[in-house]
């Protein structure tokens, strides 16, 4: 079996936001209202001369026990056999319960207005979406199915993002996760996230 996961190394993320741009172009996200499938938080940490910036990329965690899927009343949110959590835009009625259930703030809404804006922004012919509803990261499933990496991983200049198969012991992602160097976010919630972070705090002291 394949179980896709991502490892994000906070030590090497330089906050260039190229991942956000690549994702937006690949997945036609409503950037005009500042909504992204992946977002890099820019935060100042520390005091006085100790202060420094930390860049924190976030995205859908493709949880193995996804609360967004549990609450979805229409079955629009579903999980593929390889662990990728997807949304079927045709089935999504846009009740937003999934956005309420997500502990990682990974979901945003696409309205009728956004589709109209999208036609103008991405082009009438090119816009892939024609029904409103909720949207989120899909690990670029359409690319992964062709053997490519997600757009954000492909474009990352600092190699801060690694994408791979947790069930393949030879995959670097599986090895980093198995070593314990990378940890998921809020594991205590029982969501079993499949995005792992290598902390930068210990190294920078």
């Amino acid at each position: 079996m394949t179980r896709y996961a991502m490892v994000i190394d906070l030590n090497t993320c330089v906050g260039c936001n190229a991942c956000m741009a690549a994702c937006a172009m690949e997945n036609q996200t409503p950037v005009w209202k500042n909504k992204w499938r992946t977002y890099v938080h820019d935060k100042e940490i520390g005091m006085a001369e100790q202060v420094r910036r930390r860049f924190f990329p976030r995205l859908c965690n493709h949880c193995s026990n996804p609360p967004c899927m549990t609450v979805c009343p229409t079955g629009a949110t579903y999980q593929r056999a390889d662990g990728i959590v997807m949304i079927d835009p045709e089935r999504c009625m846009g009740c937003r319960a999934c956005a309420m259930a997500c502990p990682y703030d990974a979901r945003y809404e696409v309205s009728y207005h956004d589709i109209k804006e999208g036609r103008a922004f991405y082009g009438e012919e090119e816009l892939q979406r024609d029904s409103p509803g909720m949207d989120k990261c899909s690990f670029c499933a359409h690319r992964v199915d062709k053997g490519l990496k997600p757009a954000c991983v492909e474009t990352c200049v600092g190699s801060a993002r690694l994408f791979g198969d947790l069930d393949d012991p030879n995959d670097p992602v599986a090895q980093v996760v198995a070593s314990g160097a990378a940890q998921p976010l809020m594991a205590y919630l029982g969501t079993r996230p499949n995005v792992y972070y290598i902390n930068d705090m210990k190294r920078r002291g």
């Binding site: 009343p73 229409t74 079955g75 629009a76 835009p89 045709e90 089935r91 999504c92 009625m93 846009g94 937003r96 809404e109 696409v110 309205s111 009728y112 029904s131 409103p132 509803g133 909720m134």
Partner: peptide
């Protein structure tokens, strides 16, 4: 957001 899908 998508009124037609309420049918489900």
């Amino acid at each position: 957001l998508h009124h037609v899908a309420v049918i489900y």
